[in-house]
Design a binder for these strands. Structure first.
Lengths: 337, 337
DNA sequence: GACATGGATGACAGCGCTGTCAATTCGCTT
DNA sequence: AAGCGAATTGACAGCGCTGTCATCCATGTC
């Protein structure tokens, strides 16, 4: 039979309400009592019943993670974020629910409402690209559901986690410049993702700082997929003046570029330097291993969830944490031929 | 304010208990009453409170999906299954919870117990490779938690979904044989995954049926990753007698094989035919597009969950549904040179 | 026509917690 | 030593449902 709060209360010779106070870290419990209750909980391996808690109280101890499964960028990216969010929720005994939503679909808001009405999550974690989807944010505010975001575009008043992707992109392009490259191409990600904008901006910034005027032919549109990287690279290799280096907005596209290089008989890095962004497991498995920016997605999911939980647990307002990036220089970039 | 069961009862002029009966599709309610109650529910947009239901009753309306995040095969595979499970759960208003577990870790069972004690899922969905992890199954049975599996190895008494992977593998190797190939290599997946065994068995079956003795040098171990495909291919290409075709146990490894072919100056499919298994999005994006077996992961997750839900909702015992595979012949396989 | 049978319905308690508010104790002031 | 506010603790109702059991009524039986 399940151990109930009442059983703990009896064992610790206090009232159920006091056990409840200890359970919820509330004030006005003497240290002595608190210690005794904690010991009893421990000894009896007490686990509060989540349904009872949420029925009686105003909190559900539930966090929902929302993601877009329409133009889902890289599912491994989301899977890692999910793992991180889950880890953070686990640590504070919150449960987590995942919710795919199709951005721009008619029933987006209705499905969101259903989620909120049915399950009453205490808060939600938003992942790109829905971190900045205005109708969503509006509805969450209307319904008074706090949220934290992973890499939101709009940073004012946001809580969650970010990385300075623009500076990271600039750094990786500077790395190419230091190797003597001048004709550096960029493959852009899906248009309205923040990641695409920042990485493009960082590319431009680095090029401009090096006094290189932008050549529009060297900036081509991709879509974060391997295939779009291949297509973009073919465009670039068809140019009269080929680039000597390509910075793709993510690793999948960079892999596509390397693939296309093979087709064109270009040896990486001898004839062409290639770099990506994200540091997916693939980057290390490639040959040559891919120079890229490490983006710790799992950690980012965890931090975003932690900030949300800080807020929910009344531990301050929650922040927008900026985590450092790190440039992973491997074998796909070399001195200009 | 929330609409409660009591409100519906008043609107339909029946007792709360009768509304509860209708809500749970119980017997002993007259058609007339049932219709009236349903109408009232509809009109008031009534949503039962999951916590109240699970607190009062013996069911939690919760399904947990368990997966192994240790040697996680392809995360996109799991992500798709997850989407399918979620869709099925949604349809019957069950909620879903995901739970990563590390197989063979000390606290596997403890974490499973925690999940069960904390959340009382009505059932769980198992994904490869933990579908056949004996200690897990044992504990689930002990704790009386029903489960359904996606592609379990042991099919007796199992419910969920499978595909005849062995026959599929045999079919794809037969396709290579029809193209005139005789030296056909196979790259095996992670050792104790059912998928690896079946695909290897299908390969052997086809070769034997064609009267070709097995050449151990042509069967190399991989690990379902791109990198392991590259490594395996290098081994194969170093052979005095190179294979003219390679059947890799999944698409990621097949991609690695194609990559390595590029390194060795082998043109696919002219010099080497390559095929995979799974039909991941990548398969279509590659150039040449990959010949492979379509495995509809999302659908499979959905079906497994549906079988579990049939069981939970008292709609019969739940079955092990076998879904058909389909051979996707694309451009990576051609007549032997 | 009296009575057994089974389907339809409802009354009521209680699932395990938390919110509210009252009661008690404690430390400190004057 | 009395008095007072703050800290600590507890009593109790109730969150929104479901399980149990009692009741009612229509039907069939002899």
């Amino acid at each position: 039979m399940r151990v109930r709060l009442e059983d703990v209360a009896r064992a610790a010779s206090v009232s159920p309400k006091t056990v409840s106070r200890v359970l919820n870290d509330e004030a006005n419990v003497s240290d002595e009592t608190r210690k005794r209750v904690r010991a009893a909980m421990e000894a009896m391996d007490y686990r509060p019943h989540p349904s009872a808690r949420s029925l009686a109280g105003s909190r559900s101890f539930l966090v929902a993670m929302l993601y877009d499964n329409n133009d889902n960028p890289a599912s491994t990216y989301l899977a890692e974020i999910q793992d991180g969010v889950l880890e953070a929720c686990d640590a504070y005994r919150y449960s987590m629910m995942v919710r795919p939503l199709r951005m721009r679909s008619d029933d987006f808001i209705r499905r969101l409402d259903t989620l909120i009405s049915d399950h009453h999550p205490d808060g939600v974690v938003l992942t790109p690209p829905i971190t900045d989807y205005a109708p969503l944010l509006k509805r969450l505010r209307e319904r008074n559901v706090p949220y934290a975001s992973v890499s939101p575009m709009q940073r004012r008043n946001a809580i969650g986690v970010t990385m300075d992707e623009q500076r990271a992109a600039r750094a990786i392009v500077e790395h190419l410049l230091e190797l003597g490259h001048r004709r550096i191409a960029h493959v852009i990600g899906i248009a309205d993702h923040g990641a695409s904008r920042w990485r493009l901006a960082g590319y431009r910034e680095a090029m401009a700082a090096a006094g290189l005027p932008e050549d529009p032919a060297l900036v081509v549109q991709g879509a974060f997929t391997f295939g779009s990287g291949v297509a973009a690279a073919r465009e670039l290799f068809a140019l009269k003046q080929r680039p000597t280096a390509v910075f793709a907005a993510n690793d999948d596209m960079a892999t596509g570029v390397m693939w296309a290089a093979g087709e064109y008989g270009l040896k990486v890095p001898h004839d062409l330097s290639v770099c990506g962004f994200d540091d997916t497991p693939l980057a290390r498995q490639l040959w040559p291993a891919l120079t890229t920016i490490q983006q710790p997605s799992r950690e980012m999911g965890k931090i975003a969830a932690q900030q949300l939980l800080n807020l929910l647990r009344g531990r301050g307002p929650g922040q927008l944490v900026e985590i450092p990036f790190s440039l992973q220089i491997r074998d796909s970039t070399a001195r200009v031929p």
